[in-house]
Nucleic acid binder design. Structure first.
Lengths: 139, 139
DNA sequence: GCACGATACTTCGAGTCTCGAAACATCAGT
DNA sequence: ACTGATGTTTCGAGACTCGAAGTATCGTGC
């Protein structure tokens, strides 16, 4: 059979994530966002070039039609705008509006405040991030 | 603003979880299970007393009607059986059938084999579990 | 013992999310 | 220009979620 440590690690990861989501719920509702639209907003970093649909789909682990759906939600709420990528006119990038930047900052803040991981010290967090990144990109 | 380590930790946790889910997908499809029913099956430990609906709802972070829905899916697939708790006849517990035990073992195995966390060594996993559990129950 | 509110679960119905298949627009190579 | 490949959207059906109302059982106070 498989190592019990691995089972425990997966279970704990799941639990951390679910609790983070749960505790962020009220803050999302205040901005008329759902879990899905929040995730979509989260992965649009205002300090980086606006991501295309394809990039968004990879980051969110969802397929193209679903992403179109979520992008529409964000556009409807006035948080992002669709824009044609001049380098490839097939591609549409999502640009945060000023309101989008502000709302994103607020809900991200709420998520970080609520997550159980906030209980860890900075050095513990560094350890954790190091371990998780090692798992994500096995050297 | 908030510590960037915390942001990175939450992001990494999310990513680990989503990848685990993604990679388990094919194994689930083979058993005609969805993500939601897989989670439900996961939290029924065959070595512990069968959980009530209420306990299941807490473990899965979902509400009662939703749980009834998922329980029905598992019952329809012949993986669990509803049984009345003799100690409290209001309560229904979910008991794994022999087929349920077998299918659960298979899909759990698939999830553990696919998760990025499988790339970590036993001692790294212990570290990780220690950190996550500290976050979950800040003593 | 029997009302009473509380608890565990289900049913119902409406809404949200997901996703395969097909359509559309644009690109890149020839 | 033609052709196949790529990025996105549309369409439609299905899966999932959840509030409100309903049923069954429990536990307490009288």
């Amino acid at each position: 059979m498989t190592a019990p440590e691995l089972t425990a690690a997966v279970t704990a990861t799941y639990d951390i994530w679910m609790r983070t989501v749960d505790l962020t719920g009220p803050a999302l509702a205040a901005h008329n966002l759902t879990q899905a639209t929040f995730q979509a907003l989260w992965v649009i970093d205002p300090d980086e070039p606006p991501p295309s649909m394809k990039v968004m789909a990879e980051r969110l682990h969802c397929n193209a039609p679903n992403l179109t759906f979520m992008a529409n939600q964000l556009v409807d709420r006035g948080l992002v705008e669709r824009s044609v990528d001049p380098a490839d006119r097939r591609s549409r990038v999502l640009v945060l509006t000023p309101k989008g930047r502000q709302v994103r900052a607020e809900v991200v803040e709420a998520a970080l405040a609520g997550t159980p991981l906030a209980a860890l010290s900075p050095s513990e967090l560094r350890q954790l991030v190091a371990l998780l990144n090692r798992a994500l990109s096995p050297a």
